[in-house]
Amino acid sequence: MKNLLDIKGIKKHFPVRGTKDVVTAVNDISFNIREGETFGLIGESGSGKSSVGRCILNLISPTSGEMRYKGMEYSKFGKKEAAVIRTEMQMVFQDPYYSLNPRKTVWETVEDTLRVNKNLAATDRKKMTVDALAKVQFFENDYEKYPHQLSAGQQQRVGIARAIAPKPKFIVLDEPTSSLDLSVRAEIIDLLVKLQKDSGITYLFISHDLSTIQFLCHRVAVMYLGRIVEYGDVNEVFHNHRHPYSKALLASVMKPDPKIPRSDYRLSGEIPSPINLPKGCHLASRCPEVEAKCREIDPPFIDVGNGHFVNCHHAAPLEKERIPVTQKN
């Protein structure tokens, strides 16, 4: 499969007001997203997942690094050039209610995103709006409703309609299901899967809900303190994870099955502040497998085979010794 997006070494620093400190939200991240796949980004709050999503859409511009969409380096595009790419890259936000304008009806919300494209005739625009709304099961009698008249699941469907209306190739989904109830969540996931099947959209799915990621994604990257610590095929990462952080993260997921015992692999403490990051491996202060060199030297990315990469000194390269899987499945 071809790469749709190539992200190379992006960094994002936010200055802290009143000081010379910077928050390193994204710290030298590289990955690629293939056409038609769902790429998952997981990690705790504060790990920089959302910042990565926003950088990719150029909603915030990365401090440094390269981003290519179909081979085009677009991070330095001017307004006019960026507008072309914008229609092909869209976003769905976490909180459906707060991301909709309370004074716009369902129809206006979706149609207005298409007005940005000045070359679009009014009739085409109307037709595209009807199409997008039909795809999320919204029909004529709901067009004039305002967000407060809709349930959370319906609101999120409007958010999705707004994103798919310009017929994009790529959508960033920033925790689209985390504020929803279980049954509504299932409904939104079904919808996303169906849209991808029908029109081959590529997704970047950002979430801390690991079971949804496992269900939906083809490849996954685990983030910790602005860095990717492990990435690879979803089954590799979920069943054969090597990085101590991934182990702890996946061990803390409580499986809805009383027969699977809880794993006792835990990290101590909390995520350190992203201001003044420590030297060496960022996990060193919490890692149960820490060694002297972890505190000094940045760990390299080690290829452990099957397109699975681990950013840890302890990961054995290529099939030497498989670390026993901590979770039974």
Partner: peptide, 22 residues
């Protein structure tokens, strides 16, 4: 039954019965 079947973990192996409405 519906609640349990809407869990992604269960859905990997089982088909979901749709939980319609609210």
């Amino acid at each position: 039954r519906n609640l349990l079947n809407s869990l992604p973990e269960r859905r990997i192996t089982q088909e979901r019965i749709e939980l319609k409405g609210s």
